[in-house]
């Protein structure tokens, strides 16, 4: 059950990255998220927002919805802070991406492909859903 809920709708534009981060920072403060998670929340929202900016189809609805919520599910897992990010681009499930090659030397090491990998490795819980013509990716951290 979500205790507090708030969302931001914003155009999928690189220039909005700072506004998106400010929103998440404000929400984290309001939801009393511990300081140790602030860098992780910032990374999650930067990687996922820029993924949409860079890859979502520009002719479709260019709006992205970002929602922060604090959940208390009453079981042993305790409370969680979740960020849900929603876009109206073509179906894209970040969890289906192959893990990047990490064990190579500097010459052969690819320079990209780390964003989603960082998100999935840092988060305690990630889920993707395609519903009503939109992609919804949710990332949660234990508090």
């Amino acid at each position: 059950m979500a205790q507090t809920d708030s969302s931001l709708s914003i155009a999928a534009d690189f220039g909005n990255l700072s506004a998106v981060k400010d929103f998440v920072r404000r929400q984290a403060k309001m939801l009393r998220v511990p300081e140790r998670l602030s860098g992780k929340l910032e990374l999650v929202v930067e990687e996922l927002f820029l993924n949409i900016v860079n890859y979502a189809h520009p002719k479709l609805k260019e709006e992205v919805d970002i929602r922060c919520s604090r959940h208390s599910n009453g079981d042993t897992q305790g409370e969680m802070i979740c960020i849900a990010i929603q876009d109206w681009g073509p179906p894209f499930n970040p969890l289906e991406k192959d893990n990047p090659a990490l064990e190579q030397n500097v010459e052969e090491r690819p320079i990209g492909g780390l964003g989603v990998y960082l998100v999935t490795q840092m988060a305690d819980y990630c889920t993707y859903a395609r519903q009503n013509e939109n992609n919804c990716f949710t990332v949660c951290f234990h508090l």
Binding site: E42, L43, E46, E47, G112, L114, G115, L118
Partner: peptide, 9 residues
């Protein structure tokens, strides 16, 4: 204080 995949790149 902070680095993302863009920084790693």
């Amino acid at each position: 204080e902070y680095i993302s995949s863009a920084g790693l790149r």
